[in-house]
Design a protein around this nucleic acid. Structure first.
Lengths: 357, 357
DNA sequence: CTGTTAGCGCGTTCAG
DNA sequence: CTGAACGCGCTAACAG
């Protein structure tokens, strides 16, 4: 079994040249002047192909000082970032990253830095990974307001790109424009005629949450909504939102529209409304951010704001890959405008207040 | 910037000992007899901690011959395995794998082997990855009936575990028992009183699909359902199933229950029924396999068969990690019984045939 | 155009 | 218990 992998020397011996010659042919960046004679070149390539030679990546990495791998580091807050249903968007990011990096021949490593034992700090694990030459660059997602990772990466000098709007000058970041997400969500509803809106936003500990908050409040101010724009960012699960909406229903003058952070929340809200005998969008409109592509398949009727996760992740991959390849990137950051996709959970508000209550 | 990483020699010099001594203390497996004096040991540990030394993983891998990384290799058939909505379960697998491997201090590498250019073969890319010393072991998912990967891995001698029921003797495999999935889906409906069932299964090119097929037909035979058990495995997307069910509705004697491969298909079927004026489960019952945990959040009313993706992936990780750590594993394979979770899309069949048609 | 030589940073013998 | 020396497989600088 375990057929011994052959090495550079083996094929060099076979061809009758020196190892360096083989190395030059197989992995050498063609420098100016430095060439190998076509004859031996062909011979080497042929033998390498025949013998099915595969260079040892570890040896290459050690010698070259780079690993041809980039790491994805997700949230450090949840202890199960990938199995946490709140982080569903990470799956889209992983998929698009892997796919795009593959085009560059770069591998994707999932960097887990959650503490294993109590007393262990996530930051330490993170620095450990970054210092261990495991990857040439990092993609950071789920960036929080007080995130320590960018600073650590800059100190170490490891290239990185943040998925999440830039919160410092010059940080390479790619994301959907979350300020616009917030702004457009509110103003779309306003445009439909809604003058009383409830927003259930993601936490402002996240950069994205903070940006959406800015967009939301900005829209509220420009449109003069005042206290008729109700804002919360403490309800995130389906259940939380269900409860929050149900409670709100017991208070007077319920808003005519709801703006949620993701599909799950939207369903929580819709269910609370339905359980209270209200219908969507006749009594209350619902708009939500699109967190999961999968959701669109089963809920095509939801009016959503497309967060373009895949495009964002692809762009992040390209940015980082370009940087590693030495391509000078002009724009270190890129913001995608969100795309509002109207469907059947939004409509004009009811003329009269709904009965009872 | 880019603080130069320190190496073994640096801290050896600082302490005033030889590099080997440091190596022994920091990464040495404590052999019998071979010890380092407690004094220098402490000193070394202290200095290493103070200076924040992190060993170079590439050098370690090269010297030791193992990388402390395992690779996940998904389907080779789709060119975008991770962004393909049909492969949603892969996300659950990734999450659970990353989490469980992290407990062992093992990293997860996403191995992409889809061909980049036409003329490139996925198998070649796969062998390339396996031969390049990128990882110590592999997890294979989306195993097809004629999959070439297990054989290739065995030839190379790389440890691996298959997520998917074993299709050869002795292949290390972990999965939900798909035969039982098929069997229980049908017999549960039968138990409710259904004597005419339509099944929309995953393709039989997949091992899992083949196994489910066996379970389905076995149940059909045991229960004497004959041609009243209608089987198809050519409709997989929501649209496909919608179309298939709609067409079937135009033919006489529609089944009283439907058994689908995943939630998306279930929604396709439900929609077709609703569009035809039928209701679930009054007119037709629906049971589906649970492919995505996320779905349960928004569709708690669906009667599902829990495929236990996370447990399966965790077990796969443990199996492989144990093997790499040299622990002798008794059971190379493990099958989880599926868990049927009744909800509100199943019920007894209607007494009379539904009107019209 | 090609061979020689010296690392890359660490693990692991083997003497002492 | 410790130091010296070699090897992991490959790249790169320097001669020729």
């Amino acid at each position: 079994m375990a057929a011994k992998n052959l090495k550079l020397a083996d094929i060099a011996e076979r061809v009758g040249v020196n190892r360096s010659e083989v190395s030059r042919v197989l992995s050498g960046v063609r420098r100016q002047g430095r060439t190998v004679s076509p004859a031996t070149r062909e011979h080497i390539l042929e033998v390498a192909r025949d013998l099915k030679y595969y260079p040892d990546k570890n040896a290459q990495s050690l010698a070259k000082g780079c690993t041809n791998t980039i790491g994805l580091m997700m949230s450090m807050t949840g202890d199960r970032p990938l199995t946490d249903s709140l982080a569903e968007h990470n799956h889209e990011i992983i998929g698009a990253l892997a796919y795009t990096l593959h085009e560059y021949g770069i591998h994707l490593l999932l960097a887990q830095c959650a503490p294993k034992h109590s007393g262990e700090r996530a930051v330490d694990n993170m620095v450990h990974i970054m210092r261990s030459q495991l990857c040439d660059g990092m993609v950071l997602s789920d960036i929080t307001v007080d995130d320590e990772r960018p600073a650590a990466l800059e100190e170490i000098g490891l290239p990185f790109v943040v998925i999440g709007s830039p919160h410092g000058i010059g940080l390479p970041a790619v994301d959907v424009d979350n300020v616009r997400v917030g702004y457009e969500g509110v103003s779309y509803l306003y445009g439909l005629g809604h003058r009383h809106i409830a927003v259930y936003n993601i936490g402002r500990n996240l950069i994205s949450g903070q940006n959406r908050f800015h967009g939301i409040t900005q829209a509220g101010e420009e449109l003069g909504m005042g206290r008729r724009l109700e804002y919360r960012d403490d309800a995130h699960s389906q259940m939380d939102v269900y409860t929050a909406v149900t409670q709100r229903l017991n208070e007077p003058s319920f808003p005519t529209a709801i703006f949620t952070e993701d599909e799950t929340s939207a369903f929580g809200a819709e269910r609370a409304l339905r359980d209270a005998g209200l219908s969507v969008p006749k009594d209350v409109s619902i708009i939500t951010c699109m967190n999961s592509r999968l959701m669109r398949l089963i809920a095509p009727r939801l009016t959503t704001i497309n967060l373009r996760h895949e495009e964002v992740a692809s762009a992040a991959a390209r940015l980082l890959a370009g940087q590693l390849r030495g391509v000078q990137i002009e724009k270190r950051s890129k913001l995608f405008p969100p795309v509002l996709e109207p469907a059947r959970t939004t409509g004009p508000p009811r003329k009269r207040r709904f009965p009872g209550r």
